[in-house]
């Protein structure tokens, strides 16, 4: 019960600060919007091929923009050494981690709600299987948040953390991108001899395994 209260307190604190400063959502949304625009110029020479590129662009946008959000989310904790204030308090590290993951999920989810419709619009992708598409985005984002939060918390004080974070997280997140692109392609009606079901189960499995692994590791890594 107490841990739940602490989790809520950390999450609410992040939301309060964000509501006041908007220094996560604005950069994230702007960055993702620009990405989509640049991708449009880069790939739309042949509109007939838009459907081939579209699913990939959806996931590159999710991955890149969420990285921007992660860097911002922990910049806030770095100022005045605040992350240490949390970790030196009587709070299980898991509660801090969970609050950060959920916070990042909320911000990324908002960004996706703004940007992904644009991708679908610019690249003229008709989503025929809406539930599969939404499930893939939701499950994929959870995976990105779990792995990203673990390492951005750990790298908060490292030199070159902006470079290290993608270097460390992207290889681990490759399965999420592969599965996400597959389901998205299927959802926009790509002629593939596959079903989205197994890929969605795969994403759910990834989230579950890494949910447990990152939660356990965070505690260990912080207290090492």
């Amino acid at each position: 019960m107490r841990t739940l209260g602490q989790f809520v307190a950390v999450l609410r604190k992040d939301l309060t600060i964000e509501f006041r400063s908007r220094d996560i959502l604005y950069p994230m949304a702007l960055f993702s919007f620009l990405l989509v625009v640049v991708f449009s110029f880069a790939f739309l020479s042949d509109p007939a091929k838009a459907r081939d590129y579209g699913p990939g662009i959806v996931w590159v946008t999710v991955l890149f923009s969420s990285t921007v959000g992660l860097n911002r989310l922990f910049d806030r904790e770095r100022e005045n050494g605040c992350l240490w204030a949390l970790l030196l308090g009587p709070v299980p590290a898991g509660a801090v981690f969970a609050a950060k993951v959920v916070g990042h999920l909320l911000f990324t989810g908002l960004m996706e709600a703004l940007t992904l419709p644009l991708v679908l619009l610019f690249f003229d992708l008709p989503v025929v299987d809406v539930p599969a598409f939404l499930a893939a985005v939701a499950l994929g984002t959870v995976g990105v948040s779990l792995v990203g939060t673990l390492f951005s918390a750990m790298l908060m004080n490292a030199r070159m953390k902006e470079v290290l974070l993608p270097l460390v997280t992207y290889p681990v997140l490759v399965p999420v991108v592969i599965a996400g692109v597959k389901v998205t392609a299927l959802a926009v009606g790509a002629p593939l001899a596959e079903e989205p079901g197994p890929w969605l189960r795969f994403l759910a499995g990834f989230d579950m395994v890494f949910g447990v692994v990152t939660l356990l590791l965070f505690e260990r890594m912080v207290r090492t």
Binding site: K13, T16, I17, R20, S21, R76, E79, N80, G81, C82, W84, A85
Partner: peptide
Amino acid sequence: LPHDLFLYPDL
């Protein structure tokens, strides 16, 4: 209470 205060500047 360290030198870097442990307070959130935006609260």
